[in-house]
């Protein structure tokens, strides 16, 4: 079939932005392939299918509301096996990594990761991956059903954010072998700031001089902005990357 299947992502009952990015792109690609833009949802998220109005069809596999890598990957694999989409889009995200690569590998489908652009070409697709620390773009050609894992932020989420009433199809999916069990969700520490909720971020480094220099800024200058990220007290992950959930000093 020439369908484009989007593996939706949700957290705490909300579809993640990458879902809408993928749906917008999938709808565009389905327009060329002549197939349907199909959204696959998990758990009780079919109740929010109205947010996925851009999809031609929503396939609900049920299962747990809480993400489970083993269970979700098994469900996706059974849907892909049954529906044989031309393209499977997953996020190159914490959740998408656990699903896209194993499903593609298990079904002997090419997997393209780190993808930030995908275009139809010569009956197949041309995918551009941003590799080597974003120093090199690698263009891959696939001419058979494939799994493409998209970098979040590559496409406009608003293009896929359309309300509507797409038809919903329940699918009796495989549930995994029960070797992975969700225990609990761990929220960021209460004093932390979620920078994804701010319209404007100001990041400062050594040039600021000292933390006092931030504190000394007139408060009415700081008001419209989101968190200011000082070099003192900035939390870094152990991998050396700033952890978006652990910024200090909210203004």
């Amino acid at each position: 079939m020439s369908d484009i299947l989007v593996i939706t992502e949700h957290l705490k009952g909300q579809f993640q932005d990458v879902t809408f990015e993928m749906l917008g792109k999938a709808k565009e690609l389905a327009g060329v392939s002549g197939g349907q833009c199909v959204a696959l949802v998990f758990g009780g998220m079919k109740e929010k299918a109205g947010e996925l109005g851009i999809a031609d069809l929503v396939v609900s596999v049920g299962g747990s509301d809480d993400y489970n890598p083993e269970e979700y990957a098994a469900a996706v694999q059974s849907v892909v096996s049954a529906r044989s989409p031309e393209l499977v889009l997953a996020g190159y995200t914490s959740m998408g990594m656990d699903i896209g690569t194993p499903v593609g590998t298990a079904l002997d489908m090419p997997v393209i990761a780190y993808c930030h652009d995908i275009q139809p070409a010569d009956g197949g697709y041309v995918c551009t991956s941003r590799l080597y620390g974003a120093k090199i773009d690698v263009v891959s050609s696939v001419n058979r059903p494939a799994v493409v894992m998209l970098l979040a932020g590559s496409f406009d989420a608003d293009a896929g954010r359309t309300s509507g009433a797409p038809p919903i199809e329940d699918f009796a999916a495989e549930g995994g072998a029960g070797k992975v069990r969700f225990k609990s969700l761990i929220e960021p520490e209460a004093g932390d700031v979620d920078i994804t909720q701010s319209d404007v971020l100001v990041a400062v480094g050594r040039g600021i001089g000292s933390q006092d220099d931030i504190e000394n800024w007139p408060r009415n200058w700081r008001k419209p902005w989101g968190p200011i990220l000082p070099h003192h007290g900035l939390w870094w992950t152990r991998a050396g990357y700033p952890n978006p959930g652990r910024w200090a000093n909210q203004v």
Binding site: K12, S94, V180, K183, L185, P188, T196, P244, G245
Partner: peptide
């Protein structure tokens, strides 16, 4: 396991 926005989940894995 880390998700986005600083959220994490705890899993038990055989």
């Amino acid at each position: 396991k880390e998700y986005s926005g600083g959220v994490m989940a705890e899993f038990e894995v055989d």
